[in-house]
């Protein structure tokens, strides 16, 4: 009976055991950005709903989204979206059985960080009318 040794069974090692690696940070950041992007999507949905209701409602939503705080939330959401996009593509390669070698996973992780920053800057340049 397995119940006899309850409390005396070996436990698999968990977070506290391992040396922190930046790939671990990327992993949890994927989940955090995914959940956090809910807020960005709610704000954007509100913006569309307000436009569908009429000009007055739109002015309120648009005012919030283009305010300083709204803008900071949108920029954070933009980076979170670009990170989640890049790291999501990395995940799709893993799901296809590719890129599991340690060296490859480290380099693809760096590419995700760089890619998310570059894409965020590019979209912000579009927003500022540079492109």
């Amino acid at each position: 009976m397995a119940d006899v040794n309850r409390g005396d069974r070996p436990l698999s090692p968990h977070l506290t055991i391992y040396r922190p690696l930046y790939t671990m940070i990327l992993s949890i950041t994927h989940r955090i950005t995914g959940v956090g992007l809910t807020l960005g999507l709610v704000l954007v949905t509100w913006w569309f709903l307000a436009a569908a209701i009429g000009e007055d409602a739109f002015a309120v939503a648009d005012g919030v989204l283009t305010s300083v705080i709204g803008g900071l939330v949108l920029i954070a959401s933009l980076w979170a979206l670009m990170f989640h996009l890049c790291n999501g593509i990395r995940h799709l390669f893993w799901d296809a059985g590719m890129g599991f070698e340690l060296e490859t996973a480290w380099r693809s992780g760096l590419a995700v960080i760089a890619g998310s920053i570059v894409l965020t800057v590019l979209v912000m340049l579009v927003a500022l009318g540079v492109f």
């Binding site: 913006w47 000009e55 002015a59 648009d62 989204l65 283009t66 912000m124 579009v126 927003a127």
Partner: peptide
């Protein structure tokens, strides 16, 4: 298009 036109008005 969202980035391009956000803030452009109704």
């Amino acid at each position: 298009p969202l980035a391009r036109h956000l803030g452009g008005g109704y």
